[in-house]
Amino acid sequence: MKLRLLILAIGLAAAGCQTTPPLAPGRADLVVHVLAQPKTGAQPPPQKVAVFDTPAPQDYGDFAKVDYSDLGQIVVWLEPTNGPAGQNTLNPITVDIDPSKAVSGVRHVASVGQPIILHNASSSPQTIYSVSDGNDFDFESVPAGGQVNYTARSPGLVEILTSSPSATSVQIYIAPSPWVRLTRSGETIQFDNLPPGQYRLVSWHPRLPGSKETVTLTPDHVTDTSIDVSVNSLPKVSAR
């Protein structure tokens, strides 16, 4: 019993000591709470039960509902309102391409100017290409295990394809800013060590309309805000 109390005390002390890295002098942080909002008035889907001894959730087939509390593929980025961000070092990201593995939706984010390493993770040579507007490229016969480099040119969704006709595309969202995150509803993200000033916080989702917020970051200060994606911002068409 004493041992358990001691472990609990150590755990609580450790939790109490856990802090985010200190702000760099003269810089600013931004904390963003991300939400996906259902249609106003819509009934939420049945609650998930996160224990193992209950029956499997009912299979609703084609009538399965969107779970807005856990909606993925939300992209959030921050861009200065007074023009493009200054020079930032953008580390390369690596994207595995394997036509034998089914993937769907946006799995990666990058920034304009960021190098993307396309790694052929399959066991055979692949042609890796894209016909997405502003980010088209074509690498013929990349050997198994080999890799090629592409630098993102334009903002927007990029679908990376292979010569295998049955394979799904690997999707990357390219943001116009170096401060970008791939997140999901209910998550909190943080942008650290930012130059103070006025920014536009932008959200994007493949289906739902995103939103834009203006935030002002002051030196030596952590700003807290939220952003959403929601069908409710679309123009309404009334019944005739």
Partner: peptide, 25 residues
């Protein structure tokens, strides 16, 4: 159902409507 589109060529939200009803765009 609640038909909507966020495509540049036409952005619209038909709202929720029950079986037997129709909405036009």
């Amino acid at each position: 159902h609640n038909v909507f589109s966020n495509t540049p060529a036409k952005r619209f939200d038909l709202g929720m409507y029950p079986a037997g009803q129709s909405r036009s765009v």
